[in-house]
Design a protein around this nucleic acid. Structure first.
Lengths: 253, 253
DNA sequence: AAGTGGTCTAGACCACAAC
DNA sequence: TTGTGGTCTAGACCACTTG
């Protein structure tokens, strides 16, 4: 996001991804060794490894010490290496995103909002309720609280059509991190009205707290998705993140 | 999982994590530069960077080119860098996991199972339905299909008490990768009976396909969690994100 | 202008897989 | 035994933030 659009390892990752997509390395096959690929692409072995890291994060291939890497699946249409906004995500699957503002006001923070944004209860926040639509069909309600310095910029955004995240980035507000909590909840009366569904329908609930690079809170949102219209997909590997040990290893080294 | 229990960068990661937990580097503060830390720990700068990568994946700190790294938050009790097995997760939050077997049989694969496991419809799979309980309270239904070579080992597992994942690993079956799809669904009659809740209650639905290092399918599972008993937490950053929003798979329910 | 993180190289050694 | 991926080092340059 910062830049590095021209990093060498990203080039290598793109070329490898394309080779896999083109069937040069079909699913289930083993990739050439890092040494060979390094020569092939004219880069160092470390750069090849850095590219492999990108592909592994996308779930495209697996590695095992001592054995060549295995191609796992056909490549995705796009890289998932970044946190996406609803708008970006919608466009990436060929849908037209839009929004319908239900509430936009300055109000005192409640307990949850204050805690998430690092404010005191009663401090002012900008509160936005938006119904998000895919090609005209309501699929999600977004209930977001912004700290004042962020919320003040909302007036610059066309909330019916534009991506808040993208527009705010143009004004120096960078969404760098997010913590999501996901569970299920039944639609209450307001959910039912806004999403045009029966009350009680099962919804996917996501609570999200986003911060900038320094960890300063940028938003606190409670979103509710229509269960059969949207799903989250997560890939993980044991190799991706080593288990946290309870105690540091005793070994001398 | 391969080994690397003694990797240097993991040592450095543990020591940094501890320093943050001990308040040496409080949240919001900037870490010393990589150069300084490398000297401090007596390792190369690259090794410090590798350790930082681990902490970043755990959401402990942020980085920005040109500026020192920022400590984001106090370390969490458990890392969600990987999705754990139900048993492991339950124990990590101090609950006692158990299971109640509802169905365990050999049967022909249906369409979804065959596709996920790389079989043809009608090929035999081992099908297991288990209610999982936390300290005696039902919180989840697990409906899992195993290919025969894996399912054959299930007879070695005490399904009421043990973790399948952990026991199978002792027999050379290594769960290395998984792809999860999460959405919401209402409880049907069977769900309601097994979980002892009213029909229609909002449930969190997870479809999971697990594979070994070579990408060979090990299981295909559809789990349903009671919405207010369980939630998933995920952290991500623009730099590296395991989270993906995806179009819902062709349902089937 | 100085300091810092991001990238890259060209080596090296080890543990493990595969032949 | 050979080859491979996993780890580690000691440099280097660049883009960016900060003072």
């Amino acid at each position: 996001m910062t830049d590095q659009g021209d990093a060498l390892y990203l080039d290598v990752a793109v070329r490898l991804r394309k080779a896999i997509a083109d069937g040069v390395f079909p699913p289930g096959s083993r990739l050439p060794s890092e040494h060979v690929l390094a020569q092939e692409y004219g880069v160092s072995r470390n750069t090849v490894r850095r590219a492999m890291e990108v592909l592994r994060e996308d779930g495209l291939m697996a590695s095992q010490q001592g054995a060549r890497r295995t191609v796992l699946a056909l490549p995705r249409l796009q890289s998932f290496g970044e946190l996406r906004s609803f708008s970006r995500w919608a466009r990436s699957i060929g849908e037209v995103p839009s929004g319908r503002v239900d509430v936009l006001e300055r109000r005192p923070a409640d307990l949850a909002q204050a805690h998430a944004l690092g404010l005191r209860p009663g401090d002012p926040v900008v509160y936005l309720v938006r119904v998000r639509l895919l090609t005209g069909v309501p699929v999600m309600i977004e209930r977001t609280a912004y700290p004042e310095r962020v919320g003040a910029l909302l007036s610059l955004v066309d909330l019916e059509r534009e991506s808040i995240c993208e527009r705010l980035e143009e004004h120096g507000i960078a969404f760098a991190h997010a913590e999501h909590t996901i569970d299920a909840a039944g639609a209450d009366a307001e959910d039912a009205r806004l999403l045009e569904i029966p009350a009680g329908t099962a919804l996917l609930r996501e609570r999200r707290r986003s911060t900038d690079h320094q960890g300063r809170p940028l938003e606190w949102s409670q979103d509710r998705y229509v269960g059969d219209a949207v799903a989250f997909t997560i890939r993980n590997s044991v190799a991706a993140s080593p288990l946290v040990r309870d105690r540091p290893p005793v070994t001398g080294k």
